[in-house]
Design a protein around this nucleic acid. Structure first.
Length: 277
DNA sequence: TGTGCCCTGGTA
DNA sequence: TACCAGGGCACA
């Protein structure tokens, strides 16, 4: 699941592949017009140079020379695949961007949850997004204040991008485990000291994540990723996570057992022995 | 604030 | 063959 480190890695690869090049054409290979660019948006983007690629939370923004912006969200299984025009298309290709000098960038997305849309020049509006967790903007004071306003359990709160940018279901479980906080703890009851621990834990799990661990779903390593690391089937190495997906296994820290819990329709994994409310 | 929906490959 | 996974959005 691409979370912040993986999206950062993807944006970097995209930047290196296409910055300065000119879009020749964009093809959509999935029938969902709501998720991908309609014909008028594709026509408008053709002929435009790509001037900049940036990332905000899990959103990638491709800035074009005319001021328009292509917004891309990988959701669950999206990734970039890079090739040359004329090469066979990668598996699960949903959108294909070709440049005038023959570079081909494919949005590959096995579950087709991903999103690409065009914002007209000057019309870019992003949803409210909280601070980037690896920057100085992510302060304990602001994080504590935001959590204090939440009445529900803390784990679903961490998934709220308005609270902090880029945390997904996996790293939410991992960070709470690192901070020894129960995912069921009411967000507003978590003390400032524990919020600080959680802030540090979020940074730890994000910084520890080797971005290259995220692999394209077609089984091939993402372009530019080292050959070592995760298995080629896209799954994380067995020991990649401290708690995520380890339901029924022993806690890595204490004698407890990892338990799965459903919160807001998402799986949460935690140790009931060393993670306290 | 919680639930259901989108979507489809992989798994039981 | 049915079910599960998940990010973000609309809705109750």
């Amino acid at each position: 699941m691409p979370e912040l480190p993986e999206v950062e890695f993807a944006a970097t690869r995209l930047r290196e592949a296409v910055a300065g090049r000119v879009i020749a054409r964009i093809d959509v290979l999935h029938p969902s017009p709501r998720r991908h660019l309609p014909p008028a948006a594709r026509r408008a983007a053709a002929g435009q140079a790509i001037v900049r690629v940036e990332r905000r939370a899990k959103i990638q923004l491709i800035h074009l020379a005319d001021g328009a912006v292509l917004e891309v969200h990988f959701r669950m299984t999206g990734d970039w695949a890079f090739s040359r025009v004329g090469d066979p298309p990668p598996r699960f290709e949903r959108v294909r961007i070709e440049t005038t000098d023959g570079v081909c960038v494919s949005l590959v997305d096995s579950r087709a949850f991903g999103l690409m849309r065009r914002h007209a020049p000057g019309a870019l509006v992003l949803p409210p997004i909280g601070p980037e967790p690896l920057t100085d903007d992510f302060t304990v004071a602001a994080f504590h204040t935001a959590l204090a306003r939440r009445r529900g359990p803390i784990k679903p709160a961490l998934l709220d991008q308005k609270l902090v940018a880029g945390i997904g279901n996996i790293y939410a479980s991992e960070a709470l485990w690192e901070a020894r906080i129960s995912p069921s703890a009411p967000a507003h009851t978590v003390s400032r000291a524990r919020v600080e621990r959680l802030r540090d834990a979020i940074r730890l799990v994000l910084e520890r994540a080797p971005a290259a661990r995220y692999y394209a779903r077609d089984g091939a390593p993402a372009d530019g990723a080292p050959a070592d690391g995760a298995p080629a089937d896209g799954a994380p190495a067995d020991d990649a996570w401290r708690v995520y997906g380890r339901d029924g296994h022993g806690c890595h820290r204490c004698a407890g057992t990892v338990t799965r819990l459903a919160q807001a329709g998402r799986s949460t994994f935690y140790c009931g022995r060393c993670q306290r409310r």
